[in-house]
Design a protein around this nucleic acid. Structure first.
Lengths: 222, 222
DNA sequence: CGGACCATCGGGGACGCCCCTGATCCTGGC
DNA sequence: GCCAGGATCAGGGGCGTCCCCGATGGTCCG
């Protein structure tokens, strides 16, 4: 992953940002603090340029601006084909939606532009080895989005109104079982399944098995 | 969040680990390196003890062993009621499943037992302020689990076989729209919707709209 | 120009989903 | 003992889903 020919192979980097001044600054910092470690292969100022640069140079790491003309940094990750390239977001924004959106898009790290040169070099090195690099504050957003989205209390309140049998039927229906299959699985008749489903939908105030699927999926009951 | 009465309020900590020797070591380190910053309120050796200790002392931070008799650290988080308590996993294990499981369970951080005293004090301080604390290597697991579950290449391969119109119909059906509603939305007849759906199911090798819903949901296309 | 592919639509059929009424049996509580 | 609620089942109806058959017109390409 790190090298094949020897020990101290340079880490190829592509810098993507729509401000030429900022790209110049990053390049200068990397050449000063990262001499012998990283090598800037190319720069890009928008999505199209970035995709071309990445596909051509196949860098180990892409420093990626989040707010980029032509679709944002996410669009670059979506359209690039280089499989052994890692993306490190480098943004002024520390907004939760930017961080989460970028991570969902496939970024392996997210640092703000307040970072120093040596810190950036260290971050690049870690990302190129497959680690993720986040400031603790930003990682918090990601973890909230990851673990947070369940309201246990609300689930229980609704769920408690269902009887045991109704919950069994509900679970199978939400998984995509047909009434016939549920009946066979639970050793009861289709008509009984229909009765239970009718109760489930009424109690949960839903109107179809499709809504039930989404309801259960939102609550991670599958 | 940090204090009400003054500036330098101590951060209350409960230490949960089934090895007395280790708890003693942590306590000693915290009293040495964390003097004036953290205060160990209680210790616990299993899940039941831990839940009682947390509910009684309502600490700002719980140092939580992952492999704990009686259900593991996750069980402690599940059964505790103290809402302003943050959990910091402290484990020998750096296995991905442990890290991810613990984060899913609600932990705000995860450090290994190779950590030094001062580092641990710093981690506790950050967690108590709401930040997440992860070593870069461990954060990588979490981010993989978060963003990774999508195989972009595979999606494109399947998705590219669909025509533009088929994708539109597919998206609406996967969201739970009835054929009739899709028809109205796209200004076409129900019969045309049926035709497109037939193609979608055939091309994606699915057999019902329910499977399609799960297929799309697995790929976050909703 | 003919063939491939796409989008559009129709008829008809088998079966699934959802609701209605109505029924039996059992269990637990007042 | 009666009443409530839960689990079981039946018949029948309206509509949704998914398939079969077929058709027309458009575009693009060799």
């Amino acid at each position: 992953m790190t090298d094949q020919t020897g020990r101290s192979q340079l880490i190829g980097v592509v810098v993507v940002d729509d401000h030429a001044m900022f790209r110049r600054g990053v390049r200068a910092e990397l050449e000063a603090a990262g001499a012998g470690v990283v090598e800037v292969l190319a720069e890009a100022a928008d999505v199209d340029e970035a995709v071309r640069a990445v596909d051509q140079h196949r860098p180990a790491v892409v420093l990626l601006d989040v707010h980029l003309p032509g679709g944002g940094g996410v669009e670059v990750m979506r359209r690039s084909h280089s499989v052994d390239t890692r993306f490190l977001a480098l943004s002024v924004s520390d907004a939760a939606e930017d961080v989460i959106g970028t991570v969902r898009g496939g970024a392996r790290g997210y640092v703000t532009k307040t970072i120093t040169g040596p810190e950036l070099v260290a971050a690049i090195a870690r990302v190129s080895e497959g680690d993720a690099v986040f400031s603790p504050r930003l990682a918090g957003f990601v973890l909230d989005a990851f673990a947070g989205s369940i309201d246990v209390a609300a689930v229980d309140e609704d769920l408690d109104r269902l009887t045991e049998r109704e919950r069994e039927v509900m679970r199978l229906i939400a998984r995509g079982y047909a009434y016939k299959e549920v009946a066979k699985e639970l050793f009861i008749s289709i008509k009984t399944v229909e009765t239970h489903m009718s109760s489930v939908l009424r109690k949960l105030q839903l109107s179809s098995r499709h809504e039930l699927t989404r309801w259960a999926s939102d609550r991670r009951l599958l």
